[in-house]
Design a binder for these strands. Structure first.
Lengths: 206, 206
DNA sequence: ACGATATTGTGAAATTCTTCTCTGAAGGGT
DNA sequence: ACCCTTCAGAGAAGAATTTCACAATATCGT
């Protein structure tokens, strides 16, 4: 069944599967089934099988899936079997929290360049290097061939920053600013907006 | 068309519409159209009209929507025309960043109780009050009648914390831990997992 | 060796979600 | 007044996604 274009919504579930498989592997479990995975993730087992079938056959009838094999295969499919460099734009409270967060580098995502517009902030150290002025963004990101970025600037500045990133040939943006970014179709954007999540839930709290 | 159950996916878009309308209102614009909103949000205009039609009729043919009226209506639908109290569990790096973040309270979400398991952390002040021990969670959250919570503890502790929250009658959880929570169907959970977003995007960076 | 049980991969069916298209209404210009 | 343009709402059509159901196959115990 491999070959045709895989729906975006399926790609979105692969990291979740990966998470569960990593958990099982750490617990020392050797085999699992679509049913067990479904239970862990509160998802139907048929959906998991269907999703995986887009990429090939990874299981064995009667036995299920070998945990570490399936984990490695999904890692490969997602291209997370290698490390990625990230640019971080915005070193305010949020940006600092992101830079400080250990969860990225443990999964192979390394923040290798940080930018800010505030002269007070430029020059501060953030681990490896120092915060650079946002005016140098295009040159630095291009030269370092960074293809992913995190936007953590105020909403009013987010589109400008995004335009710079695109000029620097960045292809994927994780945006923390509460605004929909306008990007060409070859650039991918993901949004993180905790307030939107909360507002969605209050609907159900009648 | 109001009456039938509104799809969850539609509810999920309302906060986005609200964001755009607030922006337009702040810019002083009085009227807008589904077409303009669609352009701002990179969404089809038909989808916006269809979504809104689940709740009633808010626009005028030929004229479009009155920005502040539609904003108020969506606020009302989402129940964000009032304030909400939140409990925050976990006061590590992430929890502190969340507690410190101004974006919640400016939208009416107030963190009114904070819990942690670490004796070093318990007792620290976080603005209004002090961090409490997680053992007091059930009692405090029940007494304060808090119905929403943010989970910002390590993955290994997240399910336990969640169970306590549910016992305390919390109905909505915003979970930052990279694990799928098991909850009864009357409890709503939203997930924030930046790594999963990045992993999804690397798929496209072949 | 064989029956009982578990579990995948998949075509088909069912459901959900999005987009199209058209009707009717509102407003502006002449 | 009348025409022209704009635009919401909604039914119908189309597309996408999820779920069902089953044949095929692997393992285990006897």
């Amino acid at each position: 069944m491999a070959g045709a274009e895989v729906p975006d919504i399926v790609i979105g579930r692969l990291p979740i599967y990966l998470r569960a498989l990593t958990l099982l592997a750490e617990a020392g479990q050797e085999f699992t089934s679509s049913q067990e995975l479904g239970q862990i993730l509160s998802i139907g087992s048929a959906q998991i099988r269907k999703d995986l079938s887009h990429f090939g056959e990874f299981g064995k009838q009667g036995t299920g899936y070998e945990v570490s094999y399936l984990r490695d295969q999904i890692s490969r499919i997602l291209h997370v079997d290698r490390d990625w460099s990230l640019a971080l734009v915005g070193f305010g409270d949020l940006g600092q929290a992101i830079a400080h967060y250990g969860g990225f580098s443990s999964k192979g995502f390394h923040i290798t360049a940080v930018f800010d517009a505030d002269p007070e902030v430029v020059g501060q150290s953030f681990g490896d290097g120092a915060v650079r002025h946002v005016d140098t963004l295009k040159e630095v990101v291009s030269d370092m061939r960074i293809r992913m970025a995190i936007v953590a600037v105020p909403a009013a500045a987010a589109q400008d920053v995004t335009d710079m990133l695109i000029e620097a040939d960045v292809k994927a943006i994780l945006n923390y600013a509460p605004i929909t970014l306008s990007v060409p179709s070859h650039v991918h954007v993901q949004y993180i907006d905790p307030v939107a999540h909360l507002q969605k839930m209050t609907y159900y709290l009648a």
